[in-house]
Design a protein around this nucleic acid. Structure first.
Lengths: 188, 188
DNA sequence: GCTAGCATGTAAACGGTTACATGATTAG
DNA sequence: CTAATCATGTAACCGTTTACATGCTAGC
């Protein structure tokens, strides 16, 4: 996920590591700030893989900035990862949010729809959290108030997510079917 | 977090690794099933640390089960980790949910309250996700619909969490102040 | 006959956390 | 004068993922 965040921000504009760190930390709501020990090696892996190139620039302080720019293959890799996310990037909400932050960079709305529909279909399968003899327990069967709270807040989150997903999917579908019609009309 | 889940389930009853795996996977809503390569080494670390003991039992199939039982020091460690969670276990929602799943095992409601209040106070600080020249952008200032969606669903989640936290905190506070009064009344 | 479930493990590779190391500038 | 911010990095340690390895039983 760190790698995708780096590629995503660099796809917008070249940035140096320090600025990347701030943006990535902001992306998670400062819940889990990136550590330098993760960021600098990650940038070097990307450089060795040929996805970014590095060049020096003066900093606002004394230390010179190492500015990273996405290469063409880096951009291809980024778009591929956006369009074909791994299963965990769909199921894990934190990971999906990072995907969502950069989904707008996927130029094709059909590709955007594919990702959003995968997330929505994941929500189709009901998620039972606790089991008694293999049977998932319903909220009202649970004696523990904290576990009931888990289920209640999870349900609220799911509801909000599904509502939004349905809305944005309908919006995109309208734009896709709407556009060719208009083009046809204008063309005639 | 894997370690806390293991300790939590073993605090309820002795279990073998396979059963633990099922419960831990269920706990996350099957979003991120535990891999054997994480579970078995984790159990062995706990055994070497003296937090669990292992003994054999017949399985339903051919392979014999390795049943793990929490030791007294293991239970102490578990309760300590529940009562004094690391910062990331408060800020990261996934981690906090695991904490919540076992918070009922903390016998003292005052200790439970301390944990819940820490989570609530984390929500006090506003979370800006994207920045423009250092200034956090509001949802209506953002041109990207997916990023607006991120903020919207995050706000809904936060709202549900805060509502629930306030409710359960008030409930616990009532029980704490209520109980001694009744005891006093009965005592007189 | 085959797949799914039950049941336990190991090893290599990878990536992240924590701590260490350095040094200039700016605001209180 | 001191803390925060800017700015870049390294090294040890730790835990997770992924892939490999084995073998029985029950249901289709």
């Amino acid at each position: 996920m760190l790698t995708l965040s780096i590629l995503g921000f660099l796809a917008e504009q070249p940035l140096h590591a320090y600025e990347l760190r701030n943006r990535i930390s902001g992306l998670s709501g400062h819940i889990r700030p990136v550590s330098d020990g993760a960021l600098y090696p990650a940038l070097d892996r990307l450089r060795r893989a040929g996805f970014v190139v590095r060049h020096e620039a003066p900093g606002s302080g004394a230390t010179r900035r190492q500015v990273f720019t996405l290469t063409d293959t880096g951009r291809q890799e980024f778009l591929r990862r956006l369009a074909e996310p791994a299963p965990v990037e769909i199921t894990d909400r934190n990971s999906f949010m990072i995907l969502l932050a950069f989904l707008g960079q996927l130029a094709n709305p059909v590709a955007q729809l594919r990702v959003l529909r995968r997330r929505l279909s994941f929500y189709d399968q009901p998620a039972g959290y606790f089991y008694d003899h293999g049977r998932p327990l319903r909220a009202d069967e649970m004696s523990d108030r904290f576990r009931r709270g888990m289920l209640a807040t999870a349900a609220a989150t799911k509801h909000a997510d599904v509502q939004w997903l349905r809305g944005v999917i309908a919006e995109l579908e309208g734009e896709i079917t709407g556009r060719p019609e208009r083009v046809r009309k204008l063309g005639l």
